[in-house]
Simulated scan of single mutants.
Amino acid sequence: MTFVADILMVAGTFGVAFYCYVLSARLKRFSTLESGMGGAIAVLSAQVDDMTRALARAQAAATGSAATLESLTLRAETAAARLEVMLASLHDLPERADDDAGDRRLRFVRRRNGRDEAETGI
């Protein structure tokens, strides 16, 4: 009985050794930098670094644009306030002296050149 137990123990040991060998080969293929999963991880890591740098540049540009926009908005608000003051001061101006200014109509006078009259025979 001990002999059978020893044979089963040796068979189990060989099975575990073969299993460890297969796992080690898979792990080597997984971790190779050129072709395996390690290569994919290295490429993704480089892309993450590039994206981080691009994000930092975009944030710097957005901060600069926000500062420029804020200064332009301040200038526009100042100009609008000045325009409001000018418009309010227009209400203080006196009316025109001649009241018939609104009743006036523009007249258009056509004059003929001497050359035109000669050509038409008038």
Results as ranks from 00 to 15, higher is better:
Gly15Asp: 01
Asp6Arg: 07
Ala56Gly: 11
Gly36Val: 00
Glu70Asp: 11
Glu34Asn: 10
Asp50Trp: 03
Tyr19Ile: 07
Ala56Trp: 03
Ile7Glu: 13
Thr63Ser: 12
Thr13Gly: 04
Ala25Val: 08
Ala5Gln: 15
Met37His: 14
Tyr21Lys: 12
Thr78Tyr: 02
Gly36Asn: 02
Val4Pro: 02
Thr52Asp: 10
Phe18His: 09
Leu72Trp: 00
Arg53His: 07
Ser35Asp: 13
Ala5Met: 15
Ala66Met: 09
Ala40Ile: 12
Leu69Phe: 00
Thr73Tyr: 05
Phe14Glu: 08
Tyr21His: 13
Leu74Arg: 12
Ala56His: 08
Gly39Asn: 04
Ala80Met: 00
Thr52His: 09
Gly64Phe: 01
Ser71Thr: 01
Thr32Ala: 10
Asp6His: 14
Glu77Met: 05
Lys28Ser: 00
Leu55Arg: 08
Thr52Glu: 10
Ile7Thr: 14
Met9Ile: 11
Gly12Leu: 02
Met51Tyr: 03
Ala17Lys: 07
Ser45Tyr: 08
Gly38Lys: 01
Leu33Gly: 06
Val16Phe: 14
Leu27Cys: 06
Met37Cys: 11
Arg75Thr: 03
Ala11Lys: 08
Ala62Thr: 09
Ala40Cys: 07
Ala61Asn: 06
Ala25Leu: 06
Ala80Phe: 00
Leu33Cys: 02
Gly64His: 01
Gly36Met: 01
Arg29Thr: 04
Ala54Gln: 15
Phe3Tyr: 11
Thr32Gln: 12
Gly12Thr: 02
Ala54Thr: 15
Ala62Glu: 13
Arg53Asn: 09
Asp50Gly: 04
Leu33Tyr: 07
Val48Asp: 04
Ala42Phe: 06
Glu77Ser: 10
Arg26Glu: 04
Ala40Gln: 11
Phe30Met: 07
Gly39Val: 01
Leu23Asp: 10
Ala58Met: 10
Ala66Trp: 04
Met9Val: 12
Thr78Ser: 09
Met37Ser: 14
Ala67Leu: 09
Asp50His: 05
Gly12Ile: 01
Lys28Tyr: 02
Asp6Tyr: 14
Met37Lys: 14
Gln59Val: 05
Ile41Gly: 02
Phe18Met: 11
Tyr19Glu: 08
Ala61Lys: 05
Ala76Asn: 05
Ser65Leu: 11
Ala76Tyr: 02
Ser45His: 10
Ala67Met: 08
Ser71Asn: 00
Cys20Glu: 14
Lys28Ala: 05
Gly38Leu: 02
Arg29Lys: 11
Thr78Asn: 07
Arg26Cys: 01
Glu77Arg: 05
Ala56Asp: 12
Ser65Lys: 13
Thr32Tyr: 06
Arg57Tyr: 06
Ala60Arg: 06
Ala25Ser: 10
Gly38Ala: 10
Thr78Leu: 07
Ala58Cys: 10
Gly38Phe: 00
Ala79His: 11
Glu34Phe: 08
Met9Trp: 12
Tyr21Asn: 13
Ser35His: 12
Val43Phe: 06
Thr32Leu: 11
Thr68Met: 07
Gly64Lys: 03
Gly64Thr: 05
Thr78Ala: 12
Val22Leu: 11
Gly36Pro: 01
Gly38Thr: 02
Leu8Ala: 12
Gly12Gln: 03
Val22His: 05
Ala11Glu: 06
Ala76Ile: 03
Leu69Pro: 00
Ala76Met: 07
Glu34Gly: 07
Ala54Ile: 14
Leu69Trp: 00
